Simulated assay, not measured.
Amino acid sequence: MAQGYPPPQYPQNGYGQPPQEYGYGQNPYAQQPQPYGQNPYPPHGRPAPQPFRYQPRPVYTPDEVPAPPETSNWRRFPAILIDCLVAVGPAFAVADQAGNPGRNGAPASVPWIVALVATGLVLSFVNQVLLARRTGFSVGKGVMALRVIRPKHVMRPDTWRLTRRWLLGFVFLLFTWLAEEFEGAGDIVGVRTVRWKHLREYQQAVARLS
């Protein structure tokens, strides 16, 4: 009769269980696997990237597109200065011509200061009212790429509104220079000075929604 082999003997670890290094148990020092996409140790100390969250853009109708904003003082003040030079420069030439004595020592027909003020006001009115009504800008605003609009309907202002704005502009400039600071005029009599760039963007947005 053949004698059977005795069962294998394993070294005991004090608890009656096979040792862990033989593969019968789990390594208590093994690191648990991390879920995919979570890195607890980002490189170079940067935070882990956050998931992208889509934020829909506001949907407007043609009537709800915001009007172009008021231009900055850095563009408005040079435009006013150019418009003043356009009116005052020729006015000095006309005043010098009208205020000089005529031939044979005849007295001047118009005093120098009267000719200066009258010519300057006429040129200023033609530039800032009539020209702006026709084209949407004066000479100074055209050089600085500005336009005048009515913010309520984003359209070119009429002659009466431009005239009132022209008259109130002298009072505004007077108080501005007395206060030694230049602040935005805002929407005087419902007329706003905007950048031509912003006006074109508004027109393109309205055209796409129409």
Rank of each mutant, 00 (worst) to 15 (best):
186 G>V: 07
115 A>D: 03
3 Q>M: 13
195 R>N: 00
81 L>Q: 09
22 Y>N: 06
111 P>E: 01
109 S>R: 14
202 Y>R: 00
176 T>E: 09
173 L>I: 14
176 T>W: 03
68 P>K: 03
164 R>L: 10
44 H>D: 06
80 I>C: 07
166 W>M: 13
128 Q>D: 13
176 T>Q: 11
67 A>G: 04
41 Y>W: 10
194 V>H: 01
8 P>I: 03
48 A>P: 12
48 A>W: 10
105 G>N: 10
3 Q>K: 13
96 D>C: 07
192 R>P: 05
23 G>D: 09
24 Y>G: 15
202 Y>T: 04
68 P>E: 02
41 Y>H: 08
1 M>A: 06
13 N>E: 03
186 G>W: 05
167 L>V: 08
111 P>V: 06
173 L>N: 02
207 A>H: 07
100 N>S: 14
133 R>G: 13
92 F>T: 06
117 V>L: 01
169 G>Y: 09
54 Y>F: 09
10 Y>H: 04
72 S>D: 15
63 D>G: 09
82 I>V: 11
177 W>F: 13
16 G>W: 08
84 C>S: 11
9 Q>H: 00
12 Q>S: 13
25 G>S: 03
209 L>G: 13
191 V>E: 00
25 G>Y: 00
130 L>Q: 06
75 R>Y: 04
179 A>W: 04
156 R>L: 04
61 T>L: 05
174 L>S: 15
128 Q>L: 11
183 E>L: 14
17 Q>W: 10
112 W>T: 11
73 N>E: 01
143 V>A: 06
164 R>P: 06
85 L>K: 08
178 L>R: 01
150 R>S: 05
19 P>W: 13
78 P>N: 05
140 G>A: 11
56 P>N: 08
12 Q>R: 08
155 M>S: 05
17 Q>L: 13
86 V>E: 02
205 A>Q: 14
140 G>F: 14
144 M>V: 07
208 R>Q: 12
69 P>G: 02
92 F>A: 08
107 P>T: 05
197 K>P: 10
11 P>S: 14
67 A>I: 00
210 S>A: 11
99 G>W: 12
61 T>N: 00
42 P>I: 09
144 M>D: 05
134 R>P: 09
198 H>D: 09
36 Y>I: 15
155 M>D: 15
59 V>Q: 07
88 V>R: 13
144 M>G: 00
158 D>N: 12
105 G>Q: 08
53 R>V: 14
105 G>A: 02
41 Y>L: 10
74 W>G: 12
170 F>W: 14
203 Q>M: 03
167 L>H: 04
30 A>D: 00
146 L>Q: 01
187 D>G: 11
147 R>H: 10
108 A>I: 07
20 Q>C: 02
35 P>I: 06
99 G>M: 06
1 M>D: 01
191 V>A: 01
14 G>W: 15
208 R>I: 04
3 Q>V: 15
166 W>G: 11
199 L>F: 00
18 P>M: 04
137 F>C: 15
53 R>L: 15
183 E>W: 12
73 N>T: 14
76 R>C: 01
145 A>W: 12
46 R>D: 15
154 V>P: 05
8 P>N: 12
174 L>I: 11
153 H>A: 08
54 Y>I: 02
125 F>V: 07
61 T>D: 01
99 G>R: 12
14 G>I: 06
81 L>R: 04
